[in-house]
């Protein structure tokens, strides 16, 4: 009886540890990894998850590795990115990155364990403008109507947004339009804003243009940030067009590697990412989701990161 028990426990231990093994993929593409650990610093099902999942099959083929997606949510990305700083810079661990989220953390007063500039930027893959969205049946059909109503009743209209970034975006829009609204922070992500809008609990929400496109008409954008109209939202003007200057912050997703990852490994990853982005299904999927695809070399990725960082700083100075 005792021996059987011991054997049973032994088998259990061996079995469980074998689960961690994974396949032995011998890479001939220069990446010397059995498996690749792809960190997503957010919960499954969100925009970052979809970015990674979209690329995953193509990356696996291009790099000849197996990719394990690891969700490390918490601290609005802080946990995942901080974990990346501890990984070996051998190309076997990478992470998704979101702007301006990582810059916001980087600039914050508390120590998050990293700075945005520490990481090696492989490439940014997609971007979206931010939009002021209302429910389909909202009384406001243009941005001017909304702004006027807000001006007549300062603080009387409620605008929902995601956490601290949302507060910044709302303030940025307020400065650009001269209106004053009551900001309502949601906790889980943009997904929490949509029921609030549809149920009439808030008057408007700040979401990515992509989310408006995804919603299939349930929510409507009154205006978007930036200087270019979004192909997924053909009838929506930019704030700039309507005379509201200064609302520029959008959202971008990319891929980063641990600090100190050598250039040749970054290049290998960049090539794989570009291959994934260029594959047929991907371009169409991005368009459908309202995202703008980006094509960058690693150097361009660093420039982009700095641009986004400057834009964030400018926005914060602007609203002070």
């Amino acid at each position: 009886m005792k021996r059987t028990n011991l054997m049973a426990v032994g088998a259990l231990v061996v079995g469980l540890s074998a689960c961690g093994g994974g396949s032995q993929a011998d890479s001939s593409e220069g990446l010397d990894c059995r498996n690749v650990d792809f960190i997503v610093p957010y919960s499954p099902g969100g925009g970052s998850d979809r970015q990674v999942r979209r690329m995953q099959p193509h990356l696996e083929k291009a790099l000849d590795v197996k990719i394990n997606v690891t969700y490390m949510e918490g601290g609005d990305g802080a946990i995942g990115w901080q974990a990346l700083t501890d990984k070996k810079p051998d190309g076997c661990s990478v992470s998704n990155v979101v702007a301006p989220n990582i810059m916001l953390l980087s600039d914050s007063d508390q120590d998050v364990g990293f700075k945005a500039a520490d990481f090696e930027y492989i490439a940014w893959t997609e971007a979206t403008a931010n939009a002021l969205a209302v429910a389909k049946d909202s009384p406001y059909t243009t941005i001017e109507e909304f702004v006027d109503a807000a001006k007549q009743d300062p603080g009387g209209l409620t605008v929902a947004g995601v956490g601290e970034i949302g507060a910044l975006l709302s303030a940025e829009l307020g400065t650009a339009t001269g209106m004053e609204v009551s900001y309502v922070p949601v906790s889980g992500g943009v997904g929490d804003i949509i029921p609030d809008l549809l149920g009439g609990h808030v008057d408007a929400g700040i979401v990515g243009a992509a989310h408006v496109a995804e919603s299939n008409g349930k929510i409507v954008a009154l205006g978007i940030t930036g200087s270019e109209e979004s192909p997924a939202l053909p009838d929506v003007p930019t704030y700039e067009e309507r005379g509201f200057e200064g609302a520029t912050l959008g959202q971008s997703w990319g891929v980063i590697a641990p600090p100190g990852t050598p250039d040749d490994i970054v290049t290998i990853w960049n090539d794989a990412v570009q291959e994934a982005m260029a594959s047929e299904g991907t371009q169409q999927a991005l368009q459908d989701e309202g995202l703008m695809p980006l094509e960058q070399s690693p150097d361009e990725a660093v420039d982009y990161m700095n641009e986004m960082h400057e834009a964030l700083k400018a926005a914060r100075d602007n609203v002070k």
Binding site: M72, Q82, E164
Partner: peptide, 22 residues
């Protein structure tokens, strides 16, 4: 414990980055 869900305010983290996620 960790960063507040609604406002990026750290609570009970004692300055440790690792506790930001609660």
């Amino acid at each position: 414990v960790g960063i507040s869900a609604t406002g990026a305010v750290p609570r009970y983290t004692f300055g440790t980055p690792e506790l930001l996620g609660g």
